[in-house]
């Protein structure tokens, strides 16, 4: 079927860009996470429980590393919305992963202030070192490489976030070493935010 004689409908142009989430393992919140969620839900009016949806998804990600379709169904039940509404939200926000990710999610800021300081080269170095393109996970499941948009630390450019933690002023020539250090020292390899002076 074609709608327009000049439109090549056989090339996939008519297909939805929707990426189906992974079904994943059976999922239910641990009792601790469920209690945390109920604590959080009390911050909002009782009839506005849906406000706890984003916090609930963070708890899922903390529990199993990503947000599977089964987890979405569970969250829908706990929060009191439909699974479609949960997927709608998960697919919108970049910090929720609907596919499995590596142990370390390397997020390189690519926006102007970081790019002016060499962020493109950092992504290039990391990509070669890990043998993966941005958006991919290495075969061992250790590293996922991502390019992200402005992280709000432009004075410490280029900035890389690994999972929830920051690494500032990374030079392209030091990017390979960061990967090695993550392998040996874990997240302690990161510089952290320069404003947390008490932690140094």
């Amino acid at each position: 079927m074609t709608f327009h004689p000049k439109m090549p409908y056989d090339t996939g142009l008519h297909q939805s860009a929707r990426q189906l989430p992974e079904a994943g393992e059976p999922f239910a919140f641990t009792p601790e996470n469920l209690a945390r969620l109920e604590d959080i839900a009390r911050r909002y009016p009782p009839e506005r429980r849906r406000s706890a949806l984003l916090p609930a998804l963070y708890l899922v990600q903390r529990q199993q590393g990503y947000v599977s379709a089964r987890a979405m169904a569970h969250v829908a039940e706990v929060v009191g919305v439909t699974p479609a509404e949960v997927e709608d939200v998960v697919s919108y926000y970049t910090m929720f992963y609907a596919q499995r990710v590596g142990t370390y999610v390397l997020q390189v800021c690519r926006t102007l202030s970081c790019a002016l300081n060499g962020a493109e080269r950092i992504t290039d170095v990391l990509s070669r070192k890990l043998g993966i393109k941005p958006g991919e996970t290495d075969p061992t499941g250790t590293f996922t490489l991502m390019e992200v948009e402005c992280l709000g630390a432009c004075d410490r450019a280029p900035v890389v976030v690994v999972n929830d933690q920051w690494h500032e002023c990374l030079k392209p020539e030091d990017a390979e070493r960061l990967v090695d250090d993550l392998r040996t020292k874990g997240l302690d390899a990161l510089s952290g935010c320069h404003l947390c002076v008490e932690k140094r």
């Binding site: 919108y92 926000y93 970049t94």
Partner: peptide
């Protein structure tokens, strides 16, 4: 006062 954390959306 409560803190509500977003999830990556300009």
């Amino acid at each position: 006062i409560h803190v509500h954390r977003g999830a990556g959306a300009y």
